[in-house]
Design a binder for these strands. Sequence first.
DNA 1: TTTTGTTTAACATGAATATGTGATATCCAT
DNA 2: ATGGATATCACATATTCATGTTAAACAAAA
Lengths: 210, 210
Amino acid sequence: MIEVAIVEDNEKIRSLIQRYLDMQDNLSCEAAMESVEDMLEYLKENNPPNVMLMDIQLPGMSGIEGIGIIKEKYPEVEIIMLTVYHDSHKIFDSLKAGASGYLLKHTSLPEIKESIENLAEGGAPMSPQIARKVIQHFNDPGQKQKKESDLTPREQDIVNGLVDGLSYKLIADRFDISIDTVRAHIRNIYKKLHVNSKAEVITKSLRGEI
Amino acid sequence: MIEVAIVEDNEKIRSLIQRYLDMQDNLSCEAAMESVEDMLEYLKENNPPNVMLMDIQLPGMSGIEGIGIIKEKYPEVEIIMLTVYHDSHKIFDSLKAGASGYLLKHTSLPEIKESIENLAEGGAPMSPQIARKVIQHFNDPGQKQKKESDLTPREQDIVNGLVDGLSYKLIADRFDISIDTVRAHIRNIYKKLHVNSKAEVITKSLRGEI
DNA sequence: TTTTGTTTAACATGAATATGTGATATCCAT
DNA sequence: ATGGATATCACATATTCATGTTAAACAAAA
């Protein structure tokens, strides 16, 4: 039996979801509060649920602030955001704060049920549009990496060695070449990148400018 | 009608998926190749598909390398990875390279169909376990930031100087202190971070481990 | 009040780095 | 087949870095 709790200020939505979930035979939903503050009050007297559905726009503390506090006191609670907001900042702030899923409010009741089960099985429920934004977060910086970098594969190897904090000697050992060869490559790398120190190469590399 | 292409080296899996997708009335699947090289050859003579299913382990070029090349030549193609690998590096490398979705190979044929439709509607198909790892990527760094840095403000100044690629002399000039003071700070920084080179400090700093 | 931590500073020395000059072999493309 | 880029290696040298030792002034903590 999965215990579910709800934090949602709209009374109609809250009781609708609560009644639907509670009538499922593998779920129970006892706690349905209208604010994070009320939920914290409730949790002082009761056992924490397995899963918590959380709105963002709430009276008092916001749902995003709530995530941090709930997760700190009850780290085992899995939190799913259930909200109308689909802007990147709210999504990423929620995930960084510790949310395990993010659903948009037009999600149907059976889909919410499915998401809760999904979470219990080690998944991470997300509305498709949300998943798209999360993935775009990886795509965009990826394009910058391609633009530049005239570095040859071998030169990139050497750069990786530098980033790993290796000395010329250790880089030479890693690739089984002489230290003078390492020097030669580094000369060329410096020329291509218009720099003249290890430090600048490492910084450029880790900032994705190579 | 959504045009789908497949790159998968296992002949059985490939033709099974191709036949299933091609029999759907809203999908067509003409191209099913066993390598990225073959697919590139095919695309010279034919129009690019809307969606491409791509394995990672392939003869010749890997699927992850393939993403970059395909997306560069045909940016409008949406690529879904379909693979047995669920390790974080492969997932993130794929997404960074430009993949729009990531499914594990145990995904059923109807679910693959659903994922393709999902993608056409602006979603991002992901197996639940994959979504979980992607979300954890946001969770973990948030916790590390809390631990952070026993470095004093002055020491952090020095670290910033190193990241900017300055020599000890230039750092001394920037903060109007002697070069021996810079040395002293750096000694303490090395001790606190358990490192013994500029390179490691820069790498740690830019990776957010300070 | 004694200890601990931060910031400042000097002197010394071996190790690592930056840079110049030159060379050979391979592969790819014009 | 000739030139260009890549990858390899050598020798030389000036600069920068890493590290040890020592120590003063000051502030915060025990």
